[in-house]
Design a protein around this nucleic acid. Sequence first.
DNA 1: TTTTGAGTTGTTCGA
DNA 2: GTCGAACAACTCAAA
Length: 478
Amino acid sequence: MKQINPMPHYSRTICWFRRDLRLHDHAALYHALKNSEAVHCVFVFDTDILDALPDKQDRRVEFIWHSLNELQARLQQLGGTLRVLHGKAQVLIPQLARELDVQAVFCNRDYEPEARLRDRTVKQALGDIAFHPYKDQVIFEESEILTGAGKPYSVFTPYKNAWLKKLDSFYLRAYPTERYFSSFARGAATVLPTLASLGFIPGKLDSAYPVGESGAEKLFDDFIGRISQYHETRNFPSVQGVSCLSAHLRFGTISIRSVASDAHHTEGTGAQTWLAELIWREFYQMLLFHHPHLAQGLTFKPQFNLIEFSDDQEKFAAWCEARTGYPLIDAAMRQLNQTGYMHNRLRMVAASFLVKDLHIDWRWGERYFAGHLLDFDLAANNGGWQWAASTGCDAQPWFRIFNPVTQSEKFDADGKFIRRYLPELALCPDKWIHAPWLMPAAEQKRCGVMIGRDYPSPVVDHATARIRTLAMYQAASS
DNA sequence: TTTTGAGTTGTTCGA
DNA sequence: GTCGAACAACTCAAA
């Protein structure tokens, strides 16, 4: 039996915020406040992360900045302050800990390979200063849900069943940080560094997008009102069917316990379907933890490492720039490029198209999504792409290939979503909206949409591409 | 140890 | 237009 040392009471500590930008139901903050006289709140704009971003206009940095702004304002109302630093976190945190002469640093665990490395370095550099990481961003960590043989799952359904079986109110209880709000260290108000001083240019994030803890709450309240229809509406991108909470779950502006708890206690297929999506989130995190090589570009199924993809830059550019000639694909890519978000159904369709119609390496698509998604999460993005490429664990059979026209007819029947992002097709009749290249010349002239002039001709023929994909995968799997 | 049932999201073809 | 079968075979997880 492992001996558990009781937590000492500290005079001064740091609560280091990372992807948990909220004040309520926050594991590390709760333990820090409860066990300290004075808690200093800190966030670091980590240059190890920021310097790797390809674009100096980045919605994620803006989202974080706005959320910190709110966090700081709320903290100041409570008599505390938020220090926001800019530099190498693994250097700055130990430095600040010495400067403030704290006895401990509290934070919530981050399970990504790079983050784990960083935290090990910080712990070591802290020396005698205690380092207390907590479970906060998942209900169950990587080794809390195991098979009967004590091994990690690699199939979703049995994992989900085991997850649900283990779930009880103990794992969903909130950490009542507000009980100890008097323990924030007093200090002069600090000034948030501007985005410009961080080397970023603001303006890309939609100003109407709700950010911060308040934004998350607003979105969740709205979603709870329609969660009972989630299972029916979630596949239709023109309908407000999904929760839109992905970015908030990514940055921790909302607690996973609070949303999972509400979903768990709500009757009906809608809420249960949504809860399953939250379980997917943990499944992929668990998978990446146990198979860190997935982040190095290796496939879960080794035989598919051998597939030779095309390196057609022109076709890849057409996909990225939303000019494939397939309206649903192009509308999806414009949604991503313009808003930093893409509807889940469309992520599958667009990913399948890149891999199985254009025969381009799924890693290229993974990287593109990684650069553009506001809700980008390494584990989920990699899992999703490998699923779409049929190289992942528990993958769909490789001969399942999405037909971009059929998907369009099914999930955007009236072309409402397509027209929202492709105004050049606004006058294209419903009959042709999913495959406008089939429109007779006279009809093109009549509605003023000339294929090849106003909207591109398709970059590939789906039927031909499909046959080639089948051959590629057949060759790799035999 | 062996056996058994099952595996997120699909498409096409032919009757 | 609708329906069922075929598309492959394998590995996981539990009994």
